[in-house]
Design a protein around this nucleic acid. Structure first.
Lengths: 103, 103
DNA sequence: ACTTGACACCTAGCAATGCTAGGTATACGA
DNA sequence: TCGTATACCTAGCATTGCTAGGTGTCAAGT
């Protein structure tokens, strides 16, 4: 899969993963790999900046884990949850349109 | 729909539209609007550069229409037809993955 | 005759974003 | 001890859709 295919949709995927419960960055990468059956093996250089972007936008909030390894744990904010809903709707519309044109 | 959603998928949409028969640029824009039920109202500044890109990549070929208005008519090359097949497959995979993660 | 709008093409420069490639550091098993 | 996995980070690049501007033709309305 070309990397460009993901553009504009990564944020929604991350929000969806974090909506199941707080996760740290590395675990988010693993979870994306898992849920996609291995297809979505995103490099850290893709995901970490995206997390910072989402936090700056107020859609995620983070804190350093007290124990164990140095981990920044992200959780969904109320705004992030609303945005996830919007993005899911947008995905519906987008995929419907693409299907219609490609068919 | 955010414009970024389209990124990386526009080429496939254009190839699909042209695969039904040669069309000039403006008509391609109209056809995309039509097939998407009005959702895909793409500005010329998006489509024309994309057409040049696709022609430079050897996926489309063009010629000026002899009669009537000044029109550059695009048609699919053999390479373009193959690429369209690849892109359709890629879309399948991509949308499956997104569904799996968003669900 | 003039004006408006649709048709039809083009491009420079911008903004967003995923990736490459590099860096740092800890923990654990061979 | 040495490699591998875990875990974080960033600068700079390449791609790409869009904005905003430009040119010109043609038909219809006033």
């Amino acid at each position: 899969m070309r990397p460009e295919a993901l553009k504009g949709h990564l944020d929604a995927l991350i929000l969806a993963v974090v909506s199941s419960g707080p996760l740290h960055g590395y675990a988010i990468i693993e979870e994306l790999k898992q849920r996609s059956g291995g297809t979505l093996a995103l490099p850290e250089g893709t995901v970490y900046p995206a997390l910072h972007r989402l936090e700056a936008a107020g859609l995620l909030a983070s804190s350093w884990a007290e124990k164990a390894r140095r981990r920044r744990v992200y959780r969904l904010t109320a705004k992030g949850r609303r945005e996830l809903g919007v993005r899911r709707g947008e995905w519906r519309e987008f995929s419907t349109v693409v299907e219609a044109v490609l068919a």
